[in-house]
Design a protein around this nucleic acid. Structure first.
Lengths: 203, 203
DNA sequence: TCTCCGTTATGATATACATCATAAACTCCC
DNA sequence: GGGAGTTTATGATGTATATCATAACGGAGA
């Protein structure tokens, strides 16, 4: 995460968003780079008949929208706030200068892109050749490792079945049925509130 | 593309591969960074029952295997030569030093990762929410823009239907039928040799 | 020249998941 | 504190694509 003094020094500004506000739309030309200051941003695609696919959720400290920013193309997905949020916004030339002046930050960005590329490649192959339950297990493993502080050896997932559906290209009924089936097979647990519980030993 | 003198200066070595040779396997820890010198490398995933998903093909000048190299994890896919090839191989610390000393190259790498991330995001959303014909059109548009020298306004695709299937998670029969259907709808053409022809005006 | 294998092709059948319908429990908020 | 929307749930039915079978054609190698 880049410190705020540095962001200000390179002319970054803060954009405030209310729940539901759209920051940019798929197809808009990517002229800015964003970092979440507070709140939560959802990046997603929509098919012509309204189906949604969620590329990811971004919270405090995470950057998003970089890929087309660097490659100077249009955004491949839309971004909207899922709750009241603030995001840092910084322009292309300013950001390039920042990177040029700060190798460690540039490297940090490069690593972030690398990590994200690994995730996309993994999910892409899952969607292409694996079936529902396998896809869900892979996604859940990723969420546990990257989105949750993995403090104890039991992690209670904060994602709803609908959100898992939106991130795997499945329908919510299929996720519900698959999660049940995985519980029967003892691949995961479901607690009293219906929340999905992941244990360390589940590989 | 990074010039060869520089690669040598930072202790890069050349690895020779015959057709079919495997450079690394999915799950191997990513300790090196690669750039194709000659030939062609295929990166792909395999499901337990042997289905293949092709993440991409890489030819002279293109780098591959960077994502987990930067994020210090295992390769998310396997790499093999599809023809006699040579690749540059460079270690982690050497490459980091190279990047530190050469901002333009570091920026180049960052841009490459960005471009690739846009492609992965696009295909991911296609596999998640679009049907076969739409997926194929999106893939073909990408291949025409990125893999082919787009000299004239007619581009003859050099990919077979099997290769398109492997890159979209479809079966070859489905690709054959979908391509025919797209031809009927005048979204693309098929020449006398069965090759797929893309015209500039097809948006 | 013959054989083998990859490629394109097409029809018949199977299936995983989507879709549609309905409902109960829970949470939000006006 | 009561209606509205979200979440989990389950059964019945539909469908896009996979799977299986078969075949013609062309190119590569022996």
């Amino acid at each position: 995460m880049i410190n705020e003094a540095l962001l200000t020094q390179y002319h970054a500004t803060v954009v405030s968003l209310n729940k539901g506000d759209v920051l940019f739309q798929q197809g808009d030309s990517a002229t800015s780079f964003y970092i979440v200051k507070t709140g939560k941003i959802k990046m997603s695609n929509y098919s012509e008949d309204g189906r949604e696919f969620v590329q990811g959720y971004f919270t405090a400290g995470q950057s998003f929208g970089e890929p087309p920013f660097f490659s100077k193309g249009p955004y491949p997905a839309s971004a909207a706030a899922t709750e009241k949020s603030e995001v840092w916004k910084i322009g292309y030339n300013d950001f390039l200068q920042l990177l040029k002046d700060n190798f460690p930050i540039h490297l940090e960005i490069t690593k972030t892109l690398g990590t994200r590329l690994v995730y996309k490649s993994t999910m892409l192959s899952e969607l292409a050749i694996e079936e529902a339950e396998h896809r869900l297990l892979t996604l859940i493993r990723h969420l546990v490792d990257h989105e949750h502080l993995r403090t104890q050896k039991q992690v209670i997932l904060s994602f709803t079945r609908q959100q898992l559906a939106d991130m795997t290209g499945l329908r919510v009924e299929t996720v519900i049925r698959s999660i049940k089936s995985l519980e029967h097979k003892r691949q995961l647990k479901i607690d009293n509130d219906g929340k999905i519980v992941w244990s360390q030993n589940e590989k």
